[in-house]
Amino acid sequence: MKYAATDLDHFSESTLHTIPLIEAKHLNLSFGKQQVLENVSLNIHPKEIVTLIGPNGAGKSTLLKILLGLLTPDSGKVVRKRHLNVGFMPQKIQIDPTLPMTVERFLQLGLKIQKRGFFRREYSTTNLEKYVDELNIGYLLKQPIQQVSGGEMQRILLARALLREPDLLVLDEPVQGVDLQGQTELYQYLNQLRHREGYGILMVSHDLHIVMKHTDEVLCLNRHMCCSGHPHSVSQSKEFQDLFGEHTEAIAVYEHHHDEATCDHSHGHNHIHLDETGESKHND
């Protein structure tokens, strides 16, 4: 029942000495009589991937909204690093078909403001081509945003979040509706990004095994933080098994099989592997 915020030995050495990008302390929130979050704390450091898992209704989205500043908690506080730049990838977005908008325009609208005047603003456009290329969405640019597929939309939303060169990337269920191949590619890409750009990444998921392969810390939320730590230790904890039941065996696949003392998560993207049994044990 306790949250292991002080349990620092789960973090890699480098994160020990950095200031967290964002830090939530003892958050509580109720909607009416229903307590949604109970004494929830967490922090995210640069280059760290934190995955928030939990069953439906566990308060994952609510916690995300508080961290993003979209909701105010009843008590507790969120401390952000000064000038923290957040890139946000919403779970889904619905755009009315009456709005004529191409994918290209959608991305341009997300560009970061460089100079703000009363009527004129200047935008930095250097990143647009780079991420369009890396996420392979160039062929979509002239298409209406309402007509792209689910997987394409995820890549577009990710590109829009990345355009802003965020310090912290927040992804709400980034692989929902994406096939296994697409999921693996996305996770691989995110892993590259955090090493290359130094982003901290927070993602919400109710997928239990693929997510964890690159995760430094898993937070298991069920209104309160019921367990947290390195994926391996979380999967073995009693709280986790109580929450997710028997199928947690599938968790075993996320183990890295490398020695953390000599290899501090800085290896390239080649250690993403598809697990043959993954699909059958996939649960959400």
């Binding site: 909204k65 500043g69 977005i93 755009i95 609208l109 009527f119």
Partner: peptide, 22 residues
């Protein structure tokens, strides 16, 4: 509209995303 056209478009696309983006 001169001042807020782009803001209005972003709010129309997704108010939460717009707010996170500033």
């Amino acid at each position: 509209y001169w001042r807020h056209w782009r803001d209005l478009l972003n709010i129309t696309l997704n108010p939460q995303l717009a707010q996170v983006e500033g």
